[in-house]
Simulated assay, not measured.
Amino acid sequence: MEMRMTFVWGRSSESPEMYVFNLVSVFVLSLLVECLSHTRFVSSETDNIVAGLVQTGLYGARITMAYLVMLAVMSFNVGVLLVAVAGYTLGFLVFGSRVFDRSEYQKASDLPPLTC
């Protein structure tokens, strides 16, 4: 098995259909990470215990998806890197920026921000 430490273009062993599926999967995962990072799912009237359990579940899901994207990027494939960045960017545009002004929904997220 070849271990490379530089970014490469293209696919090495999978079929073209599987490569496209992998790219779409990484894009969707990174988009969902941004969705969970900037969306409020728990209302202020929710019981603290239920709200805490929902927040914990959402946090676990977000961290799992973020690590899966990170592992995909560690394949050192430029295509995977580009779709991950595109997914995070589009996710921030839709869910985190003021482009789609949702002033009545523009409250803080249920989850703490991802840190680098």
Rank of each mutant, 00 (worst) to 15 (best):
R98E: 06
V73D: 01
V73L: 06
V78F: 04
M70L: 11
V80S: 07
S103T: 00
S75V: 00
L71F: 09
V85G: 08
A61W: 13
A66S: 12
G96D: 01
L90M: 12
F95W: 13
D101T: 05
V78C: 12
V83D: 10
S97F: 05
G96S: 03
S97V: 07
F76W: 12
N77Q: 10
A86D: 13
G91W: 14
S97I: 11
S97N: 09
L71G: 00
A84L: 02
R62M: 15
R62Y: 13
V78I: 12
L93I: 15
V78E: 12
G96R: 02
R102V: 08
L93D: 14
M74D: 02
V80L: 12
T64W: 13
G91Q: 04
V83A: 15
L90P: 14
G79Y: 08
D101P: 08
I63C: 05
V69Y: 02
V99G: 00
Y88D: 07
G96A: 03
A61S: 06
S103P: 00
L90Q: 13
G87C: 01
V99L: 12
M70S: 05
R62G: 15
Y88N: 09
V80H: 05
S97R: 02
Y67I: 13
L68N: 03
V83T: 14
A66R: 05
M70W: 01
G79N: 03
Y88S: 10
G87W: 11
V69T: 06
L81D: 10
N77V: 11
L71N: 11
V69C: 08
T89G: 11
G91F: 06
L82A: 15
T89D: 15
A86P: 09
T64F: 13
A86Y: 10
V73Q: 00
A66I: 06
L71W: 02
T89N: 15
F95H: 08
Y67Q: 14
F92H: 12
F95I: 08
M70R: 01
L90V: 15
R102L: 08
V69S: 04
T89M: 09
I63T: 10
N77L: 07
M74R: 02
L82H: 12
R102W: 01
V73M: 10
N77W: 00
V83P: 10
L81Q: 11
V73P: 02
L68M: 08
V94E: 04
Y67E: 04
F92V: 06
L81E: 09
T64C: 12
G87R: 09
L71E: 05
M65C: 04
V69P: 00
F76E: 14
Y88G: 13
L71Y: 08
